[in-house]
Amino acid sequence: MPVAQRIREPAQINAIALKAYARVAEAWGLSLKEAAALADMSESTWKRARKPEFTGELTKDQLLRLSAVIGIYKSLELYFSDPLARTWMTRPNTGPLFGGTRPIDTAIDGGLPQILAVRTYLDALRGGA
Rank of each mutant, 00 (worst) to 15 (best):
L38W: 02
A20E: 09
T45V: 11
W28Y: 12
R23Y: 05
R23E: 13
T45D: 00
L30A: 04
A35W: 01
W28D: 09
S42I: 06
K47A: 14
A27H: 14
A22P: 08
E34C: 08
A37L: 06
A35P: 07
A39E: 04
L32V: 01
A35F: 03
A27I: 07
D40N: 14
A37M: 00
E26M: 09
R48E: 12
E26H: 15
A36V: 06
E26S: 15
L18F: 07
E26P: 06
S42Y: 00
S42N: 00
S42E: 09
E26K: 15
G29A: 08
A22N: 12
T45C: 00
A27R: 15
K47T: 15
A39R: 12
T45W: 01
K33G: 03
S31P: 11
A37N: 01
S44H: 10
E34Q: 15
T45S: 10
Y21A: 02
L30Q: 05
L30S: 04
Y21V: 06
V24W: 01
A36E: 03
L18H: 12
A20Y: 03
K19E: 10
G29D: 05
T45Y: 02
E43L: 00
W28V: 12
D40Q: 13
L18K: 11
W28I: 05
L32R: 03
D40S: 14
A27G: 14
V24N: 05
E26W: 06
A37F: 00
T45P: 02
A25W: 02
E34I: 04
L30N: 09
K19T: 11
A37H: 03
W28Q: 15
A27V: 05
G29F: 01
S44I: 09
E26N: 13
A20Q: 10
K19A: 13
A20D: 10
S42V: 04
R23K: 15
R23D: 14
E43R: 14
S42P: 09
E43H: 03
A37Y: 00
K33V: 08
A36M: 06
A36S: 11
A20P: 02
A25R: 12
E43S: 07
R23T: 14
A39M: 11
A27W: 01
M41H: 05
D40F: 03
A35Q: 06
R48P: 10
K33R: 13
K47C: 10
L18V: 08
A39W: 08
W28A: 08
W46P: 11
A27C: 08
R48Q: 15
V24T: 09
V24Q: 14
T45I: 06
T45K: 10
E43F: 00
A27Q: 12
A37C: 02
A36C: 11
S44N: 12
A25H: 08
A36F: 06
K33N: 08
Y21K: 06
S31E: 03
G29P: 12
